[in-house]
């Protein structure tokens, strides 16, 4: 079902497509109304983040006293950010988030690509069954497995370890499915030529298949990375040690000893959101393409 990398499905950057008809270029009433609605929607969607940024730049006293406003009475301050960065928890959680998300992405994409290649190209006993079971498991929401998985972590002594954080998050049958569909469409001639020249399967996979698959691998990686970076439930369950927490878990679990700190809360939110937003600003096209091509297959 995945709309696999059909170049059509990719999102084009700047070609103005739809009104490509004569007489439509003028700003008719319809376009003005459309424009107005669009602006209204965009403003609505941007306001919450803008408000969070505004709050994070106030003193706690300003943020916590009515009437609230865009700029605090005492002006703009980076105090909340400075405090968070100095206290150490947030940078520590950021490191955990980076390490675990990168590890999850590499392992997921690596193992999924290999399995997909096996399913696509190699003839081995049990292949059909294994593929069927893998694909059927797409239907199992990971959330319904939290109890037995946690029990397993207890048995393996993996609670409060990086292993427990990472390994249960690296199984993505949907990505295997997407990658297999892609491999199926790759021309087989190159590989056969290399095989005739004596290249091993691994060599063919590494030097021919993977390079040809860059766009889809990028798409899958982006999808997996965003999911891992933002995942809450599993890291929340398996990590209790505050020094091992990821950003989303730490933000939720650890509170200030001084009660609710609005400015600090918002500053933490912005800090946690910043890495992905910056990545998005740099790689907007790739990320959108990644989501669009992978989104239909990932559940």
């Amino acid at each position: 079902m995945a709309i696999v990398t059909a170049p059509r499905a990719s999102v084009r950057e700047d070609s103005i497509r739809r009104p490509g008809k004569p007489g439509e270029k003028r700003f008719g009433l319809g376009r003005i109304v459309a424009f107005a609605i669009l602006i209204l929607l965009a403003v609505t969607w941007l306001l919450p983040i803008a408000w969070a940024v505004a709050t994070s730049l106030q003193t706690e006293a300003d943020a916590g006293s009515a009437p609230v406003s865009w700029v605090g009475e005492t002006g703009v301050t980076f105090a909340a950010y400075a405090k968070l960065l100095a206290e150490g928890n947030v940078p520590l959680w950021a490191v955990n988030s980076v390490l675990s998300s990168v590890a999850i992405t590499l392992i997921t994409v690596g193992t999924s690509a290999m399995a997909a290649y096996a399913f696509s190209r190699l003839d081995f006993r049990g292949r059909k069954w294994l593929y069927a079971i893998s694909i059927a498991s797409i239907m199992v929401p990971p959330q319904v497995l939290i109890i037995p998985l946690y029990y397993q972590m207890l048995a393996f002594n993996m609670v409060d370890t990086y292993w427990g954080l990472i390994l249960p998050q690296v199984i993505a049958p949907a990505m295997v499915f997407i990658l297999k569909k892609f491999f199926d469409q790759l021309p087989v001639e190159l590989e056969e030529a290399a095989r005739v020249d004596g290249a091993t399967r691994l060599r063919v996979f590494w030097s021919i298949v993977l390079p040809l698959s860059r766009p889809i691998l990028a798409a899958v990686s982006i999808f997996v990375f965003i999911g891992a970076w933002n995942n809450f439930l599993w890291p929340f369950l398996v990590i209790n040690d505050t020094t091992l927490m990821t950003l989303p878990v730490g933000l939720q679990t650890v509170k200030s000893a001084f009660g609710v700190q609005y400015a600090e809360n918002m500053a933490m939110s912005i800090l946690a959101a910043l890495p992905l937003i910056v990545l998005f600003l740099f790689f907007q096209r790739q990320i959108i393409k990644g989501i669009a091509t992978t989104g239909f297959g990932g559940t």
């Binding site: 294994l130 079971i133 199984i171």
Partner: peptide
């Protein structure tokens, strides 16, 4: 190509068995 097939499948297969099938 049985050996290669299982070899390529194995990394995913092991994780899949341990962290998906077993919990199910």
């Amino acid at each position: 190509d049985g050996l290669a097939g299982w070899g390529f499948f194995a990394p995913f297969g092991v994780l899949f068995a341990v962290f998906m099938l077993w919990p199910i």
